[in-house]
Design a protein around this nucleic acid. Structure first.
Lengths: 303, 303
DNA sequence: GATCTCAATAGGCGTCGCCTATTCATGTCC
DNA sequence: GGACATGAATAGGCGACGCCTATTGAGATC
């Protein structure tokens, strides 16, 4: 049994005419006759009663017709579904990212992606790099934006470096302004507002302070990104954040660069090494990589 | 897209292994790989992510799998349905017959047919020949047992003579016995119990009397076959019925042959000339024709 | 680095589906 | 009633395609 044979069969059943059916399916009448005959032989039953000028379905033909129609409809559906997925008309991307990346880098790119591919569902998982790596390995995420180096490096994950961004100090405009640019050691006696455990920024900042030989002091700690910025704005202390986040945080925060060599972090795209990400995820990956040409400069030229 | 390709696709999806899938569908591994590749090309999307030792469905593959399964299941259903019809495991015969044939000839043959083909639905339409011919032409019946000659002969119907049966006279054992065998003209002063209009037997009997130059007299008229026999049994009069009916009517009826040349009627099978009857109807037709070898003798050797 | 596994390619062969040309059957018209 | 017209069924040839075996190629595993 073949799809063509069913197609021909339905055409004959509907036109009740071999020659017209052949025209409809764009094949010569003998070819159609042969295929119908082959189908009848394979099924072991006549499908049409060929009374001259009055082609009719036999009872076997009547039984076959609805099934044939359904099979053909299903193949058409299959074709369309798969092609819609391939053409990014439908689909889903499960993207993981750290909170600071969600705030800094993602909005513009996701907006652009959604404008290009409005049918694609975007699922964002906002977590620390550690969790993201685990979810990625589990297959619960297609793609993740993580901070390098990975907390648990593994050959099972492929990472592509996306951009390096400078960290800057944010403070309340009303508070006593630190000298500019700030050195890490200047933070020794400065009260800091610190993220909760799990934030890469926390580990990074604390590690930098320790490298200078001191333990930082926190006035508040444990908040998410927005809360930390709010506390800073309220004058509770300083915070070290990516330049891109600082740029988005608004003008009522003073942004101060760190003195050389400063602090920077590397953001990378990660996905499983063994399976290629779905089509839609690959497309998002492509757009993220393309965006690094223009974005970083614009984001980094803030004092 | 081809059935084989879908079959191969499902096999790979289920085994997650090209070589094992190839074994399962009894084809070489390269052939299977090629067909999967062809399917992917036609659909314009990869269906599997071929991570070494870990074949997985892509999202396109996931979308295709349920449809592929359904398509394959439908083809299997189609195959089985058609074959069951062809093998007379299922089906329907719409058979028309006159009341006397229903009573006389049919029971044994239908019993035999049903024993052979219990899955076939038997629909009996009991009417006069005139109605039967009309229903046959309309396509409402597959086959009819009618009395020849047809009331409205037509080239659209094909008739095959099935058997000739003698008509006999039935009477109550208690009533005054007519001489044996009875001549038509003996019925002149005999009261008859007569069927309702529409019965071939009525026309036949009345016509025979008129040929002898008299109008028959009826004590009761208008009943169906069973009622007529009941009236005869009660002594209301005589009736002229087919020998086969008389034989089945039981021993409390006296059956008397008609004197030569007697009366007989021809029963034939009729069906539309333009379309072949369905498979099941042809089989019943075959059994009816086969039965005439033995049945008539047994039915006609009464009295 | 040798071996092993397993999918992908290469090349050859047979089948099959399609085509055109023709035949055959059956209504239809003069 | 014979010529014609219509429409489905063969006949024969050609190209494509699916299958095969043999081989290559790429990751794992020891």
């Amino acid at each position: 049994m073949q799809f063509q044979q069913l197609l021909y069969f339905v055409a004959v059943a509907e036109t009740r005419h071999f020659t017209r059916a052949a025209e409809r399916v764009h094949v010569s009448q003998p070819s159609l006759s042969q295929q119908i005959k082959a189908l009848e032989q394979e099924l072991g039953a006549e499908l049409f009663s060929r009374a001259r000028g009055n082609i009719t379905l036999t009872d076997a033909g009547e039984a076959l017709l609805p099934l044939a129609r359904r099979i053909l409809a299903d193949t058409e559906t299959a074709r369309i579904e798969v092609q819609e997925l391939a053409q990014l008309k439908r689909g889903r991307v499960r993207l993981g990212a750290t909170p600071s990346i969600c705030t800094g880098l993602l909005p513009d790119v996701l907006r652009a992606f959604h404008d290009l591919h409005p049918g694609i569902e975007l699922l964002i998982e906002e977590s620390g790099s550690h969790d993201l790596v685990r979810e990625l390995a589990r297959g619960a995420l297609d793609l993740a934006l993580v901070v390098l180096p990975l907390p648990t490096p593994s050959p099972a994950l492929t990472t592509v470096e996306l951009l390096r961004e400078d960290l800057v100090v944010v403070s309340s405009p009303s508070a006593s302004a630190p000298g500019r640019p700030v050195r890490i050691k200047d933070l020794r006696e400065q009260p800091l507002v610190m993220f909760r455990h799990g934030y890469d920024l926390r580990e990074l900042t604390v590690a930098a302070c320790r490298a200078e030989g001191f333990e930082p002091t926190f006035t508040v700690e444990g908040g998410e990104l927005d809360a930390v910025l709010g506390f800073v704005r309220a004058g509770l202390g300083l915070a070290v954040v990516p330049a891109m986040v600082a740029a988005r945080a608004g003008r009522d925060l003073r942004v101060t660069a760190l003195a050389r060599p400063g602090l920077r972090r590397t953001i990378a795209l990660a996905h499983r090494s063994d399976v290629a990400p779905p089509r839609a995820a690959r497309e998002l990956q492509r757009m993220l990589l393309a965006s690094r040409r223009g974005e970083p400069e614009r984001a980094m030229d803030i004092d």
